[in-house]
């Protein structure tokens, strides 16, 4: 009779092997394991089912259960690749991987495009952009009149929509970002460069050597 290990670990639903995720992202295996510790904490903060729900995501960002923000909403939706209303572990790691300093600029540009493509049509449309600017300004303390917002959005559109079809496609977006690189500045989190140094307590639980 074979020997069966008595060590059992209960993983969350949608768990994926760190070796697989490390191969697909800029993270090492032990960093993925550190992210799993973080994931477990976030995914049980409000609803203890091992999956990150939108309110848990927003709670982690704002430390406030009632705080809502359109951009946080968009981030959740883009992290939730399967569009099933929760962020699974693999989605969490792959999405965070895009924010890694070593991730490709192409991936960052594509991720940012999905954030702005509110309705998921494959294009950033004029109305979507107006909606987003209005909503975000409404949430922030910056007060601009509708006329000014409209003028800013229209001017941006004329510049970005180089083929003049009233929507920004991924290639036009790429060219626009290359012209204004600060637009993807938020797409890089230096913290992710070495999670094990920034969060040494997470790494103690590591079971696999890289």
């Amino acid at each position: 009779m074979g020997c069966i290990s008595s060590k059992t670990t209960k993983y969350t639903p949608g768990y994926e092997e760190p070796t697989v995720l490390a191969a697909e992202t800029p993270f090492t295996i032990s960093e993925v394991e550190a992210l799993y510790v973080l994931y477990k904490k976030l995914s049980s903060s409000i609803i203890d089912d091992g999956l990150i729900h939108k309110e848990e995501f927003q709670f982690a960002l704002f430390k406030n259960r009632n705080r809502k923000n359109l951009f946080a909403d968009r981030l959740f939706d883009v992290f939730d690749v399967k569009r099933n209303g929760v962020i699974e572990f693999g989605e969490f790691v792959r999405s965070l991987g895009v924010f890694h300093p070593n991730a490709s600029v192409t991936d960052k540009i594509a991720f940012a495009f999905r954030l702005y493509d509110l309705r998921g049509t494959g294009f950033i449309e004029l109305e979507e952009l107006k909606e987003m600017v209005s909503a975000l300004l409404h949430e922030s303390e910056l007060v601009l009149s509708n006329d000014i917002i409209e003028a800013i959005v229209n001017k941006t559109f004329i510049e970005a929509d180089t083929n003049g079809d009233e929507k920004i496609d991924p290639e036009e977006w790429k060219q626009f970002v290359l012209k204004y690189p600060s637009l993807i500045k938020n797409m890089t989190l230096p913290y992710l460069k070495d999670i094990s140094l920034a969060f040494p307590s997470f790494i103690i639980t590591s079971e696999v050597d890289d």
């Binding site: 973080l38 976030l42 982690a60 960002l61 704002f62 430390k63 923000n69 951009f71 946080a72 981030l75 965070l96 924010f99 702005y116 952009l129 987003m132 600017v133 975000l136 300004l137 949430e139 922030s140 910056l142 601009l144 000014i148 800013i152 959005v153 001017k155 941006t156 559109f157 510049e159 970005a160 626009f176 204004y180 600060s182 637009l183 500045k185 938020n186 989190l189 913290y191 920034a198 969060f199």
Partner: peptide, 25 residues
């Protein structure tokens, strides 16, 4: 000045949080 920014810069600047908050203990 907000008026001199393009719409995407305006969105980026008005973002009031960082994903780094996820890592706060």
């Amino acid at each position: 000045k907000p008026v001199s920014m393009n719409a995407f810069e305006l969105i980026s600047r008005s973002r009031e949080f960082s994903l780094e908050n996820l890592f706060e203990k």
